[in-house]
Nucleic acid binder design. Structure first.
Length: 359
DNA sequence: CGCACTGGGTCT
DNA sequence: AGACCCAGTGCG
């Protein structure tokens, strides 16, 4: 049994967030191909599931099942077209329940011939719900699940027999989207809504040696070879748009998207790719090629990445010697990796007052 | 020539 | 084995 309140506020089992709790339950403690994985969530978006798509696919190819119930609405942005497509492409059964009030539960788990496990949480199957929102979650072990008489199939069957307005989506319908269930889902990519106020934030990231090696390198040298990245935490999926682009060459699944990056310090506006290396080493990387050879950032300097809108970002390097360094660095509260890297978020309005510029 | 890929390393 | 860290290769 394990309880947590994310992000990294309180945990009885050294698990910082819901994403890692589901990692443990579904991937570490469950054998791919065995039984059925279950998801119930009122809200769902692409980045909520991006860590799991290769595993779901593998699990289903080996004979397992994935059953998903998500909320939908024609008037509210509950669950997205993109996550429904991704889950269907994994081979999952996807059910959309019309109207928010009917599904406000968030439960995750699995059933195998020998065990059933259950996570009950406030965290939705979304990027923020998985990591940065303050959400509680409890993982209930199979003995306790059995003792209380919980069974996933009973829960699903009872939900299906309530007479609710439920639409089962079909993978053969992805291109046409003729089923009315699709109209209960919103479009993450082509939507024009402004960011919520709580998403008008900047990421504060301490830079590692590999983050700045190519920035410091001279052109044409061996140290300048390869791609210039900032390595991020996969706990920051929610800071970026849906990572819906899959790799075209190569065999290891990656999920990425392009964002518009305004490199304030050098006056360059470029597209930058943010990539999750799902089948390689779980790297989560932000391409920052415009900084190559510029020498404007050194190890332990800060990158301040400001999200202006869905796809528009600004990047500022804050040197250790800059006056604003300490005021900004204190927002990088999440320790990640094993080399002292930290990241965190600060509201854009607070960035404005610290830097004395309008963001 | 830059960046999508590759595939290790290292610490927990 | 997970998750950042690092140093490239070779493709377009």
């Amino acid at each position: 049994m394990e309880f947590l309140l994310q992000p990294n506020v309180y945990s009885t089992g050294n698990t910082p967030n819901l994403l890692n709790l589901l990692d443990k339950m579904w991937i570490k403690d469950h054998n791919s191909g065995e039984g059925t994985l279950y998801i119930i969530s009122g809200f769902a978006n692409y980045n909520g599931g991006v860590r799991f798509y290769p595993y779901f696919t593998d699990h289903i190819h080996k004979g397992g099942n994935v059953k998903v119930i998500i909320g939908g609405s024609t008037s509210q942005r509950l669950s997205s077209i993109q996550i429904a497509e991704a889950l269907l492409q994994c081979g999952a059964d996807v059910y959309v329940v019309n109207r928010k009030r009917l599904v406000h539960a968030k439960c995750y788990g699995y059933k195998t011939p020998s065990a059933e496990e259950l996570v009950v949480t406030s965290g939705n199957f979304t990027g923020p719900g998985m990591s940065q929102n303050a959400e509680a979650a409890i993982r209930i072990d199979s003995n306790t699940v059995q003792t209380m008489g919980f069974e996933w199939e009973d829960l699903f069957n009872n939900m299906f027999s309530q007479g609710w307005d439920i639409y089962k989506l079909d993978s053969s319908d992805i291109s046409t989207k003729s089923d009315p269930g699709w109209r209960l889902l919103y479009d993450e990519i082509n939507s024009t809504v402004a960011l919520d106020e709580d998403q008008q934030v900047s990421m504060v990231l301490t830079l590692s040696g590999s983050d700045t090696a190519r920035i410091q390198a001279d052109p044409g040298t061996s140290a300048s070879k390869g791609t210039q990245y900032f390595w991020l935490s996969k706990g920051s999926f929610d800071f970026f748009p849906a990572l819906t682009e899959k790799n075209k060459r190569g065999t290891k699944n990656t999920y990425s998207t392009l964002i518009n990056m305004n490199y304030i310090d050098i006056g360059v506006i470029n597209q930058s790719r943010v990539t999750f290396e799902a089948d390689n080493n779980l790297d989560f990387r932000l391409g920052t090629g415009a900084l190559r050879n510029t020498k404007i950032a050194s190890k332990d300097d800060l990158a301040l990445i400001t999200r202006k809108s869905e796809f528009d970002y600004e990047l500022r390097i804050i040197k250790q010697t800059d006056a604003s360094y300490s005021a900004l660095a204190r927002y990088a509260v999440n320790y990640i990796g094993n080399y002292g890297k930290r990241f965190g978020y600060i509201s854009n309005s607070d960035v404005s007052s610290i830097l004395g510029v309008s963001i």
